[in-house]
Design a protein around this nucleic acid. Sequence first.
RNA 1: CGGGGAGUGGCGCAGUCUGGUAGCGCACCCGGCUGGGGGCCGGGCGGUCGCAGGUUCAAAUCCUGUCUCCCCGACCA
Length: 367
Amino acid sequence: MCAALPTQSNDFPAWYGDVVRRAGLAEHAPVRGAMVIKPYGFAIWEAIQRELDDRIKATGHENFYLPLFVPMSVLAQEGDLVEGFAPEVAVVTEAGGKKLDEPLAVRPTSEAVIWSTYARWVQSYRDLPLLYNQWANAVRWELRPRLFLRTSEFLWQEGHTAHETEEEAVAETLTILHDVYADTLENVLAIPVLRGRKSESERFPGAVDTYTLEALMRDGKALQTATSHYLGQGFARAFGVRYTGRDGSDQYPYATSWGATTRLVGGVVMAHGDDRGLRLPPRVAPHQVVIVPIVRQDDRAAVLEAAGAIAEDLRAAGVRVRVDDRPDHRAGFKFNEWELKGVPLRIEIGGRDLAAGTVTVARRDTG
RNA sequence: CGGGGAGUGGCGCAGUCUGGUAGCGCACCCGGCUGGGGGCCGGGCGGUCGCAGGUUCAAAUCCUGUCUCCCCGACCA
């Protein structure tokens, strides 16, 4: 195993890349800007996903799923959207060995497919609101990719809602910002955020207002961790989503969209990590406690049994525990490895502890 | 797109200036000793040096072209 990491103060980008790779979160894939998310990294994402999904559902939304491909003609129906995403859209021009009659965009975001679908779903004010979310991947050919923070393909959730009134849509935008995103960031990921509104030039293409959460990373830079857009009636008009209102007249619904991505994993790394590696918030740590049995040949069985018993007790209490009984590594190696991987709490138990009826406990966060 | 850097066993690198047919650390495999902070000893497996041309008796090394990746900036979740 290699020696120490680059330090944050010397070279933060090198530190970041090294931690992501050596902690087993992700690695580069053969395609430019694409990444392989490894099991340990994906487990963190799954935990974040669960927390976000619970809150999305608690605020009244349902999940659905729409296709990866968007016909170019559909994407083009909303002018700002095509224009805004044109530089980073990947397009499929050939399939089944033939040139396609119409090129297909790989979704950079799903407003277009979704609103062309909503056109069929909204006929009356009685059909509103539509409060839907999807967990999906999206592709944006960004100029400068970075693991988790900006990858060509990323995973996210994107919510797309339709409302009868502007007030209701704006309220939705803010509910998501506060009750879903800020709550997850602060209370699950332990990352304080500033809630803000984007300037006109930074707004999502086609949006009336874009709200954002900005979080401070340990290199002193801010990271945009989630966005919630109030879209007004632009998308409804562009995609012909009209319904009969309470007074019998034609109306356009008001829209919102909002998203949070795998970037959040990178945010956790950069907001909490130190020169020894990751420090994971317990709520999203794949292993909240690791037990390292310290064994010799003569006390191996007894120590492992004691370690197993502690693990069972903790599991019964709802704690995610890993007993590191790998015989091929010594204790010191494991200490370093689990610190690199950011496990919040380590319990060491050996022959001496057994005799004394104690264990040794080390917290990762106080390093 | 502008500015840097780099492509050599799985990973990280040296060798390139001063051509002579590949080396180191880690990892991996086998054996033994060890076992409370990244153990030690011995023995192994594994690469023709991004790609394509060219020069030469001989190219990782020189020449030409080309592709890719990483970092910084602008753009972005």
